[in-house]
Design a protein around this nucleic acid. Structure first.
Lengths: 136, 136
DNA sequence: TTATATGTAACTATTATAGTTACAAATATA
DNA sequence: TATATTTGTAACTATAATAGTTACATATAA
């Protein structure tokens, strides 16, 4: 199972997007998410490095750099997931075995297709789409 | 990143499928994968429980229960991945916050679609398809 | 009867994750 | 200006998953 950073990051982004006038502190967000404020600041920092929001030391709150309809879940996922590959492939299979020799490249093309299917679906959903679930 | 069990399981299945007459011991397979025989027996045990192969204590080797073209990567993935959900969702968000109250169900429908996209692609590729990469 | 293989429990090492404390630096407020 | 608050980040901890390993009972083959 993939970690909960994507879930928490989406939660953070929705809180900021839903309250454009209020300044949401990491402590306030942490209470909504039910975690420690540092966990929020850590994920917010990743979102900031990815260019999805702006924030400043000492100044309460953060702002999205784009409208929710222009932010995809893939943008958020890539911001909080440093690893490029979805599936791990075992290292150093035996090059003297016909299967061991070719398995990595075979798995690579196979897994690339699966990862692309996942990323295509993530990029088809915007932050606004997720917020739409709240309007029943 | 998702663990390497799917990669190793596919490697095991291909070795068995490619050598239907030879009896591949866990030690032989382990040398091809470059790991410990117990790791192979552990994953083989999961594949057996999922009904994808048969094996017997004391008897060298294992046999696939279906033809490679009738085994999908989703079959193998589900065999070696006990968790049902692809993405984790944080627990106990604040029910007194409008966002915290609804985030889990919103994420659930969102993540379900992403997981389905991944599983659809996994089920579209058979073990035989992966073996096809070996014939250049 | 002896050797070999599977199946599985149990233990270890490594790593990722998430929570926590602490604090410097920046900003806001009185 | 002085004080309080907040962000950003380092550092530490606890927990869990993963993969590797040893050990051994049981089943099968030679």
């Amino acid at each position: 199972m993939i970690n909960s950073r994507l879930a928490v990051a989406i939660h953070i982004m929705i809180l900021i997007a839903s309250n454009p006038l209020e300044h949401m502190s990491s402590e306030f967000i942490a209470k909504s998410v039910n975690t420690n404020p540092v966990v929020i600041r850590r994920i917010t920092s990743m979102l900031k490095k990815a260019g999805l929001l702006t924030s400043h030391a000492g100044r309460t709150g953060a702002k999205l750099t784009k409208n929710p309809e222009d932010i995809t879940l893939l943008d958020i996922f890539k911001a909080v997931e440093p690893k490029d590959e979805l599936f791990a492939i075992h290292e150093n299979p035996n090059p003297n075995c016909p299967v061991g020799k070719n398995i990595q490249s075979a798995l690579d093309s196979t897994f690339t297709r699966v990862q692309k299917a996942m990323e295509d679906e993530l990029s088809s959903q915007s932050l606004k789409d997720v917020m739409g679930h709240f309007l029943q």
